[in-house]
Amino acid sequence: MADTFGSKQTDVAVRDDVKDYYGKILKKTADLKSKACVPGAKPTRGYIRKALDELHPEVIARYYGCGLLVPECVAGCRVLDLGCGSGSDCYVLSRLVGQSGHVTGIDMTEEQLEVARKYMDYHTQRFGYKKPNVDFVQGYIETLREAGVEEASYDIIISNCVVNLSPDKASVLREAYRVLKNGGELYFSDVYSNARISESLRADKVLWGECLSGALWWEDLMRLAEEIGFTVPRLVSANIISIGNEQLEKILGDYKFASATYRLFKLSKNSEKKGCLVMYDGNIMGSEEKFEFDAKYTFKVCIKVVEVDGDTAEILKSSRFAEEFTFQPQPGCRAASGTCRAEPEVMLDPFKQAQQFGGVTVASSTGGCCGPQESCCE
């Protein structure tokens, strides 16, 4: 499987082109030539909108993400943002992790980091903190060690439409795995293709900068995750991308693209994966009635018990979500013998899932008592 662009010399050239594109060519969101790197259609929760309203306008103006990256249950966590840009996601998370948490943003583009650092004092004062709980580091997401990011030092890693810009995606995921704690999560939104992109298109600087020709074939994400040691990628949301540029569409031909958010977890190698019964306690901010974990599982307070497979059970028990659930043994379940009724997790095709919902997929109602248009406990 090709997970790098080519030689080290070629990889450096690609990184330099991306630095120029996002540092010198793009000055604001409106400068983008396609609709690939724009926010997705999934609605933003009220507490996140409130945090967004507190951000400085210049930080917002330099936003190039393909989906707002704010995972649930982040209070007190240490969070790393790969390719933080001007810091919009970092500052939202700075507000949500609180004074006891910490957020680090890393980016290779000096111009973007200059904007992010410029408003550290502004946001510290706006949030009412005694000291900053965010810092910004210049470096490459493929070589976090060289940037001084220590092993097993973060609870959560986010990345917002950045992995597709890297010529060496395997190194990005390996480094993310290295710096995550056991039970930690890589929660990232990115652009995926419906097939491997040809070498000729991968050489197009504009298409690469627009998050298209560097997109990973979604099936290759599954292979990389397994190779590195992550759990099966859990699809959270996806939408089909409309390029919105006839010239670029003609060049791309039959290739299709989707913006998708996945969860990958790092579990202890000695973890025992047994299916079990879980009850959601309803204490996650913004998810008091239901917690949309992924496109397979939505946990609802009105449902007393939900049966989950071994992978999901171990993720919930080992991660920051452990205190939000009550766990019960599943009678007669032996994961190794395959007698658990909950089906093992498989990676979902973002294109098929999005098409089922008219171009946008949201968390399913699995484990719930009602359909997608009904309130939780009717």
Rank of each mutant, 00 (worst) to 15 (best):
K250A: 10
S364H: 09
V308P: 00
L216E: 04
I141A: 04
G310W: 00
D135E: 14
G367P: 02
C376R: 08
G23W: 12
K304A: 14
T143Y: 15
D89I: 08
C276Q: 12
Y255C: 00
E199V: 02
S271T: 14
D121I: 02
S34Y: 03
D220C: 05
L26T: 01
E323K: 14
L277N: 11
K274E: 15
R49L: 14
A75R: 06
L69C: 11
T361S: 14
R145I: 10
K35Y: 13
V79N: 13
D17S: 14
F351P: 01
P372S: 08
E324L: 10
A152H: 05
S198D: 12
D155T: 12
N270H: 15
K205I: 10
V306N: 00
S153I: 05
I48H: 04
P132Q: 11
N245H: 03
F230K: 09
K33S: 09
C66V: 13
Y154D: 02
A354R: 11
F327Q: 01
T10V: 07
N164W: 00
C376D: 11
A152L: 02
R263V: 00
R49E: 15
V362D: 04
D121R: 12
G105Q: 06
R320F: 07
V162S: 15
F291A: 03
V172G: 04
A295P: 01
V232P: 02
S365Y: 06
G368S: 12
E249M: 12
F188M: 04
L96F: 06
L80K: 05
Q328H: 15
G275D: 09
V12F: 07
Y140V: 03
I197P: 00
P350M: 07
T10E: 14
L26Q: 01
Y255P: 01
E185M: 13
Y140S: 13
M285C: 08
L96C: 11
G139H: 12
L267G: 01
A116V: 02
Y154M: 09
R341A: 05
G229L: 15
I197T: 09
